[in-house]
Nucleic acid binder design. Structure first.
Lengths: 221, 221
DNA sequence: TCAATAGTGTCTGTAAGACAATATACC
DNA sequence: GGTATATTGTCTTACAGACACTATTGA
């Protein structure tokens, strides 16, 4: 590796911020207010601030705080997209992140939420980035506790099962779901019960803050 | 996103080139011949060439061709590592890739191969990058056809099973392995048989060039 | 015929899916 | 008690793991 004789690429980060609506995943989009692609839909993103950001994930958190006013419960690096043509300003790199927020948090946000199965035209290669994120999240739903990060901090098993079902795109057996999830030891029963006009449900929270991997995944088929 | 008022980070790519030895995964390292960290072990890598590379993966392939003289059978983006301290020259980004080569290809290479379970001191954060790659490859072994990419284009079931076992770190039942792998329909029998002093084994090749995901993963435990 | 490895058949325990039965709340 | 949902129990089936058996080669 010799000293860099090459011009440095443009370096940005972009965030695919997702939440779960009635009809499946929704992504947060913004209208670009500057060129290039002014007026087009785009993912929240921006340049890395070398003086302030400790790394790219930190930049992603800063952008979410600035543009959506939220601190994120779950953030994961997705992939890095690069090439000479994706940004008209020149050879560029975008480090993309996926973030998940519960519906309630999403609704308190100035962002525009779009259903992921019918994305609008988007600036740069942002549509491709968003599709990659959706694939990743769906895949990860089958073998991890990821869907819990689309729910509020406490939830019932029925709510959790509904989140899995919407991500996996198929119904799950109630009894099997309960057995599998509970024996994974990722949930912790709280001392609260859900109200309502019927038998109240036990309310759970995640045992750990982090994503947990399931010993036995849900078959994606 | 406003016009970039910030200095652009240093942008490099690094490749964790892996092969499978008797005692498990081995990684290809080089001695750095320039500052910083001259003389230290490092991953093959380099700067992105904005005039020549179509994207970062292309840069990774170019580096492997130049430094190892090989065209790679499998290359996957691993993750991007970034921050102000990982490179003494300044705030930097490294897009890291994992590449797999069969033993025979590895041996025909000018690189130094080190066992992954006892890495030497390495330049930058390359040791961390290498560890992340090894984790990824081990995890992926349990639910995909990845181990086949550490073998020559054709192989016997016994060789494939041995590759899985070395990556998973535990023995697998011969009959179960055969059933599971064959019913996944990822292998294709050739018309050749392996020689040797015993009953010859059927020789297989991958049905597709790409990584295949298994319906039912091998339990990592 | 023996040694060594390849490939097949059978049994058993486990767990998932289906579904019925029971529990618990509010009305 | 009625209704709606939560939770538990039971049955059946599929399959992974264990392991024994058969097959095929060269020596």
């Amino acid at each position: 590796m010799t000293e860099n004789a090459y011009p440095r690429p443009i370096c940005t980060i972009d965030v695919v911020l997702l939440t779960l609506g009635e009809d499946g995943l929704e992504v947060a989009l913004m209208r670009r207010d500057a060129e290039p692609h002014a007026g087009a839909w785009s993912l929240p993103g921006g340049f890395v601030h070398a003086d302030a950001d400790r790394d790219c994930a930190d930049a992603a958190r800063r952008v979410l705080q600035a543009k959506a006013g939220i601190a994120i419960s779950w953030l994961e690096q997705l992939a890095t997209f690069s090439g000479p043509d994706r940004d008209p300003r020149g050879w560029s790199i975008s480090v993309a992140y996926v973030a998940l927020v519960p519906r309630e948090t999403a609704d308190g946000t100035p962002l525009a939420w779009h259903r992921c199965d019918s994305l609008p035209e988007m600036a740069f290669d942002h549509a491709r980035i968003a599709r990659t994120a959706v694939e990743r999240v769906r895949a990860k739903a089958s073998y991890s506790s990821l869907p819990a990060f689309l729910l509020p901090p406490t939830f019932t098993l029925a709510q959790l099962q509904a989140a899995y079902e919407r991500l996996l795109g198929r119904p799950l057996d109630r009894a099997s779901f309960r057995r599998r999830i509970l024996e994974q030891d990722v949930l912790q029963a709280t001392d609260a019960k859900a109200g309502g006009a019927h038998r109240p449900a036990q309310i759970y929270r995640m045992r750990e803050k982090d994503l947990a991997f399931l010993d036995r995944p849900f078959c994606p088929a």
